[in-house]
Design a protein around this nucleic acid. Structure first.
Lengths: 215, 215
DNA sequence: GAAATAATGTAAAAAACCTTCACATGAGTT
DNA sequence: AACTCATGTGAAGGTTTTTTACATTATTTC
């Protein structure tokens, strides 16, 4: 038993909670070394089991990553929904909060975010991932709908487009500048950058800044 | 010599152009299987040499990827500069062309784009990569400067901010929706999405749409 | 409660990969 | 022609992935 890890104690022949222990170990590995630093063998080592044990719980390495990404999307959805607060105190403020929550999630849970977006998992092989990802996007879309609905129908821009633009900018900022040490330094924080970008964008749609839409 | 590849012919004991052949093989692998599908052994196999041969040209697998990313940034810079056309016919049109060129590069050279942005190479270990990346961003920044300069100084927004916002949105769209099959389907093409996003954003700065800045 | 069954972990092994090292070969130089 | 350097080979050690046969424990059923 030379692989017996120094980490969490082992109750006996059976681990008792190996599935969770593997997920935690994988998360720690990703956080430390990036998505490519994770290996099934190392996760097993940290959980104190043999290299074959993980295969009782996950079909292969990708399945473990997919499970992590799935939980990531679920927590992401929760975090976004909480920050949106059903549009309170007002849709614009709530929308800004949504943006901050997006970046906060990417910063505070880099391993989850990496598993969700920096890992090349084919969603077709994991339908639940597609569902979970759609649910997260649905928050953003709902927020965009509510924001757009503050305008009279004639001047109302398509909410889906707004949601896509905001998602792209948020993901772009998180991905390019999200980690403090990521090579590039900014004249402002990622949060400030995103907030400014969203406000400018919404302004031209007449959804921020107090004046009507451009035309 | 069981590893003699079926690909490009071999002139003798010495390959003659192994370095380039390895880079090509790695690019093909990344294009086919994603960044994680590349292995030194397979690249060597395709080049028709032994698995140890690549180490005469690259310190390790990451160094090969870094070289690919470096070339990617150089070609990226060239493509962006060409599309920008020194601001012709006018800064706004040229700016839109820049956005299209960004997405075209991500679509047409997915392997390069992946090596540049989806691979977690530490720029600190490859200073030339940092330089090349900065050069690419400099095009975007210069374009932003020129665009901002179309406004009187008092109303001129910070060009760096514009460049960061546009880069983030372009990268976000490329990364989330750039590949046709990438799970999510859009109501419009990535190019149209980006163009609309940029125009709306610039509108509120008074840089597009024909009217002055808001507020 | 004992026996059958299911779940979970181990050991061993094959295949692939990464990388290094000593050595071989060929190219270019003097 | 001899020397030197660059480039490629063969072999080897170490790691990882995943499968298979087997061992152990938990759970269910009678």
């Amino acid at each position: 038993m030379s692989w017996t890890g120094t980490g969490h104690e082992r109750r006996g022949y059976h681990h008792g909670n190996l599935r969770e222990a593997l997920i935690e170990a994988a998360l720690a590995l990703i956080a430390e070394l990036g998505p490519s630093g994770f290996t099934v063998a190392e996760a097993a080592r940290r959980a104190g089991v043999s290299p074959a044990a993980p295969y009782r719980h996950f079909r292969d390495a990708e399945a473990l990553l997919a499970e992590i990404a799935l939980r990531g999307f679920e927590r992401f959805t929760t975090a976004l929904a909480r920050s949106w607060q059903d549009g309170k105190p007002d849709p614009l403020r709530a929308f800004e909060n949504l943006g901050r929550a997006y970046l906060a999630f990417a910063r505070d849970e880099p391993a989850l975010y990496a598993a969700m977006f920096e890992t090349r998992i084919d969603f077709a092989n994991y339908p639940s991932l597609q569902v979970a990802s759609d649910r997260a996007f649905a928050i953003l879309r709902e927020a965009s709908e509510r924001l757009a609905a503050t305008l009279p129908p004639a001047k109302r821009p398509p909410a889906l487009m707004i949601a896509l633009h905001v998602w792209a900018m948020a993901h772009g900022i998180a991905s390019l500048f999200g980690r403090g040490d990521a090579g590039r330094q900014l004249p402002m924080s990622p949060e400030e950058l995103l907030e400014a970008g969203i406000l400018l964008y919404l302004q031209s749609l007449g959804l921020a800044g107090g004046q009507g839409p451009q035309k």
